[in-house]
Design a binder for these strands. Structure first.
Lengths: 92, 92, 92, 92
DNA sequence: TGATCTCGGCA
DNA sequence: TGCCGAGATCA
């Protein structure tokens, strides 16, 4: 049997198999996402704020980038007369 | 006076001017966005559903693309045994 | 005054523990996301289009909702004179 | 039975009118968005970085909120032992 | 061009 | 108010 282009008219189960594999992975991701959601609830109940917690997570992903951006932002703010002092001794 | 690289330490008002120009444009956009929001309310009160209305807007942006995607989707769904018939005589 | 080890000015390491737990979960999610990305590559190399594949995934999540929206969209399109026929015998 | 002109199978052209009104507003927004894009190009060619420029725009929208979040972030970072000093004399 | 991310709509 | 999808932006 000759398959058409892009499996047109085909029914060999290949597409279905791919879909199910993807959905299985998706289910695993969802389980983890649920765990994260619970963890955020724990963060909140521990007296920390979720949004700040998330910002900190982002900073920890790339502390160097954060330090550089903060330094530049500091310069820009000074340029437009915003009173700030934002110093990072180094994102160790 | 010699300006440093990237206007470091500068205060010539250039950055501030750019910011204010951008913010002015942003305000204009917001006004229009508010009008659109009111219009959606009118859509709803006219008996149409907002989400479907939005889908239709998207289709009208590129009807041809929509027709092509629908046709392909039709094939894929048939391939996995989903009972559908989705025909577009042409997105005129 | 001497602060606790590894908690300069801090409280009790609770925040750090929460961060690390979250990041561990995040790493697990990333692994799965990478697997999904590879799977999409396999989808493409099998002659299917990624974007259509993703649409099909979405439809399979809630076929009934899809059928209803398609039906409504059909009505709206007819209302504005767009030539379409979009029939679903039932999203089995 | 004869349908009204330009409303084959439709109702009264109300939906079409709503769509066109929305699309007109959308076109106006797009024009402004294009202007903003050009302005960003001008920002870049003036020696400023687009992403930092955008951050500054965001801060100017709500300087007080920014100052508060920065202060909290400072506390959190100290809590996990990240060496930072991030002081805002006040978001004037 | 694709992945990420922020933002507005929706429940 | 929290989640989700879409649009925009950056690499």
């Amino acid at each position: 049997m000759i398959e058409g282009i892009n499996n047109v008219g085909g029914t060999n189960g290949q597409l279905l198999a791919l879909l199910e594999r993807y959905e299985h992975l998706e289910a695993e991701k969802q389980t983890i996402a649920d765990d994260q959601k619970e963890l955020i609830a724990e963060v909140t109940s521990s007296g920390f704020e979720g949004p700040i917690f998330r910002k900190l997570l982002k900073i920890r992903k790339d502390p160097e980038k954060f330090a550089e951006e903060a330094a530049k932002l500091n310069l820009y703010m000074a340029d437009v007369g915003m009173q700030v002092s934002l110093d990072f001794g180094g994102a160790s």
